[in-house]
Amino acid sequence: MRSLSDERSLAGEPSERNEPGGQSRLSQVFARARADGRAVLVGYLPAGFPSVAGGIAAVRALAEAGADVVEVGLPYSDPTMDGPVIQAASDAALRRGVTTADVLRTVEAVAVTGVPALVMTYWNPIERYGVDAFARDLAAAGGAGAITPDLPPEEAGPWLAATADAGLDSVFLVAPSSTDARLARVAAVSKGFIYAASLMGVTGTRERVGAQAADLTRRVRAVTDTPVAVGLGVSTPEQAAEVAGFADGVIVGSALVKALLEAERAGADPGEAEVALRGIVAGLAAGVRRPEPSVPRG
């Protein structure tokens, strides 16, 4: 269970790893988008919802419909940073028996499409799996890295070493409350991009993107050249366009998860849910391609 080597048959050989010293796959995606004058679209879905197979189909749909990067959530028993939508899907996935190995299989399914896949996870499942073992197996599954929202830079030493050895990007978060000193500290360890929380709160769709997001992005840019992606509360093409006007990436989670939850509640068949998901992603992908010029970039 700790190794994927016997389970490799599922999705064929994963795409190539980041080369040590070279530009990571995430960095390449952000560089290409910047050259095209648009933002990167990052889409999140938890593994194992509505089932392991259904979750794999859903993340593939995300990749095919226009997400530039896919975040695969690792469902966790105590999701203190998530609002009701992601909690509901994660709880259901856990009740239905999703495991860390299933999460890695889901990553592999994204990786074979050529779209970079990240694991988004609370820290304890990695610590329990074994820090080095998780980095090694995530790399073996073709993963590009991981986002660890409750692992602060102060506690991240072993994880930074393990991800560097495995050729993975380690993505860390900043928040509107972060002091400039902490922004610098996070920027020093965050690889691939920096995840900027748009507001003080948990995940979930919001009426409007927090005004704090643009300000935070500017403050991060003052301390680093690493790309900045904005998440929390972004759900519509209009919000995606707005965020694309000032940030390098737009992260959407709850709006996508909500589509799957609603499809399940309505008793829709998996095909219908996938069509709905593709439609939302296509709209968001269009949004990040028409950044609102109101706020100057960079």
Binding site: M81, E155, V174, A175, P176, S177, S178, M200
Partner: peptide
């Protein structure tokens, strides 16, 4: 100063709470 009791303790929270 970082809240460690040997290998235990610490601060494993989202960045948003660090200031508080």
């Amino acid at each position: 100063s970082a809240g460690h009791f040997g290998r235990f303790g610490g601060r494993f929270v989202p960045e948003a709470l660090f200031a508080a």
